[in-house]
Write a protein that binds this DNA or RNA. Sequence first.
DNA 1: GTAGCAGTTGCAGTG
DNA 2: CCACTGCAACTGCTA
Length: 659
Amino acid sequence: MPNPRVIYWFRTDLRLHDSPALKAALDLNPECLYPIWTWDPHYVYRARVGPNRWQYLLDCQSDLSKSITKLNPQSKLFLIREAPQTLFPKLFKQWKITHLVFEKDTDAYGRERDQKVMALAAEAGVEVVVRYGRTLYDPDELVKQNHGKPTMSLNQVQAAGKKIGEIPRPIAAPTSLPDPGDTSLDFEQEVPESKPDINAIQREGEEESYAKLAGPNGDFAIPTMEELGLKPATTQHRGGETIALKMLDEIIANEDYTATFEKPKTAPTAFEPQATTLLSPHMHFGSLSCREFYWRCQDVVDKYKGHASQPPTSLTGQLLFRDMYFGAQASLGFAFGQTYGNSHCRFIPWHIPSKIDTSSGLITGEYLVDNAQAEIYFQRWREGRTGFPWIDALMRQLKYEGWIHHLGRHAVACFLTRGGCYVDWERGAEVFEEWLIDHEAACNIGNWQWLSCTAFYTQFYRCYSPIAFPQKWDKEGNFVRKFVPELEKYSQKYIYEPWKAPIADQKKWGCIIKGDGSSTLIDGKKAYPKPMFDFPTQREICIEGMRNAYHIGLYGNDSKVLDGTWRKLFSNDAEGPTEGSKGPPGAMVEHEDADGQEENDVHEPPGPKTSRRGEADNKRITGNETEIKYHKREASQRTLDGMVTRKKKRNNSDIADHT
DNA sequence: GTAGCAGTTGCAGTG
DNA sequence: CCACTGCAACTGCTA
């Protein structure tokens, strides 16, 4: 048996402390160890990643590389610019690799990728060692102990966890690392297909992710934002294990904070400093081990003299929720991230639903505009110009800083879905995916389902008010003043509902409430938009829609959802794309009149039409002074890509009938 | 099987 | 300031 020549493949574990996989690699007593990162085209082109999260990733990689070099000046994080699926066979051969070691990844895409890589390793005679350290429990174990079912409540996580046994104690960081061997790359680089490039919008310069295998200088260096063609990051939050451990130390040093932490009591309006730990992005990139975090907290709690908080609201409770979402994702796979085909997600006929690839049963990443008004609501929500200062402040903080408080996420998610716009939670999840520095697919998807009351949580009549909710912590509106500075001078009385301020006051405070926010100046005067709807009215419409959908009681994998016949169960007057009893799969809509329509005219509101809601519609406030009535069919303005036809629909219902 | 209670974080009103 | 209620009513868990 030759001496082990080991590749350690970093992915979700950009750290040296508490890494079961890294320990396994070192336990092989390798002759040489190559710490590598492969530049996965899935991340570069297919996932939604905004500049702030890119920057955070680069921070983590740089810090890790420096830490590796500190332990062994010959070594560092070797960043190789090729897809793992094509790179590894060549690398195994060139570097005479005997072992490949990495941390297990239970994300839907991660599993697919790793299965492929493991097959390639087997072909090359390379032994693969996989260890788990990403959550408290291995999600597959958790699911197994939960009777093979996705973990849908904290109770289930705790019961299953008990059966697995104690959460592993953290492992110390290594004090030395073996040399890497020869690092020459005498083979052709295979450049991955860049289309479709979902991240094109994040770039302003030339994208050179795959310019050369070992980077422009051939030194395996971590790329710069410029090299990736990305727009500069705007966040002040910084990644890396060194920072993470320092932050953790500071939290743990404050025993009262650590032991008595109760999430619902922390203020979503707090900034400088924020009310929660800001450790979530570190756990996403693995620059902090969640088990390290867990045991450092638990040890404080165990010796705490006063009354310590308990799960679910305590710090350790927050980590258990993370495990719950990982367990749900591990069990449901790709279906977890969508309604269509998801056995545990309620079917609600939301507006602007996802397009579905009927051959794979997966959402395509595009969506259909069934209703022009809903599309306007969505765009105004995304851009932080809804006219509700609390919502807009949060969305602006999210885009700029890449992080908002958990309760702030609740507020904007409820507002977009069941408590305001009645827009598909998948739209909101996509925006969070792009902008959050702590975006974790499992947690993001799970929380959107929670807040939209499609899974995990059912009390849809508990609805967050964009006016009353923030007042619980911030009567003065300082948070709004910080992120919506045009309202800075508004009095406390009107800060959350500026449209109620007298015109004279609006002028005095230097900002008029007018328009839809598409322009910050109106007639040369600073302007903040009117609210895009009357909240109490819209809230009633949503609750009625939810009540109806709950009563009908379909889940994403119901044959009626799969084939589109769910429409027969919903009234045409119901909220959502329900017009007519026939239609394509999922919540997609027929677009008989789509031909010849302009792709981009969805932002133009349709002219006044007959109201189907009478009073409710008349109360509606719109940003552009024109009363917008809505009607389901008139808004079908997006050109279909030919995927959805009556014929395909029929085929699909045939399939569905057999299942 | 089923009744009763609890559920990470609602709101408005009352005492 | 807190604690409680009614609102109209969901699912999961326990006994």
